[in-house]
């Protein structure tokens, strides 16, 4: 049943943007809106609607990264990097963690309270929860 539910959730996410949204189990929400995702990944929002504190985690490159930025963030990779550099060098924000592979993202999200990231496919390893996009 659990596997069936996970399959269903992955299916919903994949249909929307060809990426899977994952979060640390400390995040109470099971779904996020596209607007919440955008604001979280632009650093302008640090909590979800249910009060869960979240911290974005980025991929460094790849098709899932490009698809995620195009679908949810509305900025290209260079534009997003410049956005975060603007925050970092004015002191008004921190540089999010970024990783080269999905496995590294899963490992970091699994051990970091509030972490939220995206993957090209559902993770084989446990320790993270899947979020649907409302």
């Amino acid at each position: 049943m659990k596997n069936l539910l996970a399959f269903f959730l992955v299916g919903v996410s994949a249909c929307f943007a060809e990426v899977v949204i994952v979060a640390n189990p400390s995040v109470k929400a099971t779904a996020v809106s596209a607007d919440e995702l955008k604001q979280v990944f632009l650093g302008s929002k640090a909590t979800l609607g249910d009060g869960s504190a979240v911290e974005p985690v980025l991929a460094q490159s790849g098709a899932a990264h490009e698809a995620f930025l195009k679908t949810y963030v509305g900025k290209s990779d260079p534009a997003l990097r410049n956005h975060f550099k603007s925050l970092v060098f004015t002191g008004k924000g921190s540089m999010p963690k970024s990783f080269a592979t999905d496995a590294e993202i899963v490992a970091f999200v699994a051990k970091t309270k509030g972490a939220i990231g995206y993957l090209a496919a559902a993770p084989s390893a446990g320790g993270v929860k899947l979020l649907t996009v409302k």
């Binding site: 956005h83 550099k85 603007s86 060098f89 004015t90 002191g91």
Partner: peptide, 18 residues
């Protein structure tokens, strides 16, 4: 604190973001 004024006052030193 860097002063927010217009689009780029607080980032005007950072040519790398422009």
């Amino acid at each position: 604190v860097k002063t927010t004024l217009g689009l780029f006052n607080d980032t005007q030193d950072m040519e790398f973001v422009h």
